[in-house]
Write a protein that binds this DNA or RNA. Structure first.
Lengths: 193, 193, 193, 193
DNA sequence: TATGAATGAGGCTTCATTCAT
DNA sequence: GATGAATGAAGCCTCATTCAT
């Protein structure tokens, strides 16, 4: 059973390992060998699954997107949009230690990819961020709040900003403080619930 | 006299060039040669002014810190703390095109340096960010607002977040939108002015 | 029946594909995968038919030899040796576009194999060329021309030379010009016909 | 004195080494390290003089062109064009052992480069061959022979062909035999001398 | 001080060949 | 037999750093 998964799963293993290692070490400081080791795959074999390092980075981005989609799907089960948003923020706070150490995966990746000339990989990163923006906007809209688009921008921007500060100052408490402020803000918004 | 200036000036030239090029290309993708070229200094000569690449990065950080100090000094001439804060935000909005293309210099540098193992260079980046935090806190305090510490965190966090989104989505308008929101927010704060 | 043919046919498919692809891309720039693809055979399967890449190259050489044998057999049906030789040259001229693009298959292969250290594969290439030399010598001898050996050398040498120039200068007209000169030369030779 | 040449001469050293090693081993089988070793230069340093392996190959081609120019300059001192051409052929015969082992430098290089996709390096090889064609044509024209263009093609074609056969069959005597035939042919041409 | 040149470690990628099913 | 996957040895190239003058 484990074996039947092996072959099909190796690609996945690599994606997961890439997502994690790239988040921790950054794109440029991470070698293919690093990822191969983390995935417990021989270096040469990586190229059977991904033609270039860039392809692996893209895969890591996709992995983050998938993770995010899984998270929002989870949240969508909550009946109330305000509660969904608050649960999202709660999740951020829960990740404060990771954020303090490595920052927001998508955000830091986006920053790094932006410096590359590679065709449109930065755009790809933007797309992942937009996933979150769009989901948030839907919640605000469902809530009946005015300017849901702008509110989403504010929320996600606040998240990226507090992640960055938390990371730069190595202080998880920032995440708590600003997270709670966001929770209050969400509560203060007029809306159907 | 010209000569004594020259060598002192070369060091400065390198710092300025480093700050600019590192902001645009990122730390890892920038070579010593890139910076040397931008500063119009022969490659071999760089090492007379900076022992290692890391030292150059540090210098770039210091350059950013100096620039920031110059900016806040400028703002400090304004009589009213609320106006100072609003002028700061106005400056951010004015930089929207740079932000869309390259992000916030200090923020992106901090993100990249965090991924390095090098001794404490990430801390250094944090220090630059804290300069801004401290200045903002002083303004809020002078304004008589409650929790000036938290307000500074919110303000600077919002700046970093909106810079990141602006950059990731390549849309300067985000900077305008969120910047205006911050201006309104500053106006809404209770205070002595 | 279909199946028994299949596996025998696959070997042949690979030989034909190898001959073609190696001619076009050269030995060193051609990968096993290239040949496998051209032959529509899974990569891993190639090794059931040929132990090494070298064996495939040898097979391509044999394929060229076989092709050459088929050609001379065809020509041998002509009653007159002078006509046979002229028909050979006519065939060369007819191949001018291929020659302009890729050169003479045997000649270019010989040049490349000569650079290898591999045991005697260059000798093998020489053998294929000698097939042609020997056949030409027989025709000259049958024609009663003096020094048939030397004439064969001159004829085949001229062919290799004009192929190379045609290829290097990418000009098929060279093949026509020099081919016609050879035809005149053959006509001018004293002989029984 | 030797030292003053060192720095300026290193580029040249590399060109000469490249020309020789590439002739012997072929383009694809030759590594940068091979050339670096032959030139007694550390591998990493090669890239200071030549940006890529292709650039080195180009340089080798230029070296061959230079060598050829030197040769024809030498020949141009002879008063009679027929003698110049005969001296050229004599030189070819004199090189028979090299030809038997490695073929004609320009010809084999042209064959190999033709298989590459690299931008126009094959054309470059053609240009070197054309140098020889043009020189020969000038001699035939000066001799007053009809169709000097065609005669040059015949002469150089014969050279390439006999080099290839000599190399493929590993028999220097072919060079002697065909070389002498060319000498007779040159003598038989009507002309002013 | 100034500078072109030198050095070598390390990263990405390709590919012939071998395995496991 | 058949086949996708695995493996590791090179090869090309970049670059921080050091040297020699």
């Amino acid at each position: 059973m484990a074996d039947s998964k092996k072959s099909a799963g190796k690609r996945r293993q690599l994606m997961v390992a890439a997502a994690q290692v790239l988040h921790r070490q950054g794109v440029e400081r991470t070698t293919i060998a690093d990822i191969a080791n983390a995935a417990d795959v021989p270096v040469g074999n990586v190229y059977y699954y991904f033609k270039t390092k860039d392809a692996l980075v893209q895969a890591a981005l996709a992995e983050h997107a998938g993770h995010l989609a899984g998270l929002t799907d989870e949240l969508d089960r909550l009946p109330d949009p305000r509660e969904r948003l608050k649960a999202l923020v709660g999740g951020w706070i829960g990740q404060r230690d990771v954020a303090a150490r490595y920052g927001c995966p998508t955000g830091t990746l986006a920053v790094e990819l932006d410096k590359r000339e590679d065709g449109g990989m930065d755009v790809e990163a933007g797309r992942v961020i937009r996933l979150l923006l769009d989901w948030a906007e839907r919640q605000f809209r469902e809530l009946g709040a005015p300017d849901p688009d702008g509110l989403a921008l504010t929320l996600v921007g606040a998240y990226q900003g507090m992640s960055l500060l938390t990371n730069a100052l190595r202080d998880p408490e920032i995440m708590v403080r600003e997270g709670n402020r966001l929770l209050d803000w969400l509560d203060s918004l007029p809306g159907d619930s």
